[in-house]
Amino acid sequence: MEPTALGIALRTLASLLGGYAFLWGASSLGIAGLVALGMAYEEARTLCMLLAFLLYLIIFLWVWATHHFVRACVILVAGAGLFSAMAVVLQQQLTAGV
């Protein structure tokens, strides 16, 4: 099976930008969540960044290897939006009254 140009373009976009957006949301939620659990912001950020780049590698490979490309895209985009929204809401609660 020869990969098509469109397929390559879509997977490139999904693996790099989709992965980035997902990690943006996941890291934000991770940081806000850890801060809510009592960890200092900088420490939470450091921990989430260490994990984010390893996760980026896994997401990248997964997007290229999966047979269910559409499902992967949905997971990445939905995850990005959902996690980001949850992070913003959690942040509002954490910083309320400051």
Binding site: L23, W24, S27, S28, I31, A32, V35, A40, Y41, E42, R45, M49, L50, A52, F53, S84, A87, V88, Q91, Q92, L94, T95, V98
Partner: peptide
């Protein structure tokens, strides 16, 4: 190499999480 410049690649504290980062600076 990626971790060293994480702050550039994921500038969360200057964007989406700015309120949280600012609060942290005061608490710190």
């Amino acid at each position: 190499g990626l971790v060293i410049f994480a702050g550039i690649y994921f500038p969360l504290g200057e964007t989406m999480l700015e309120p949280l980062a600012k609060q942290h600076q005061v608490l710190e």
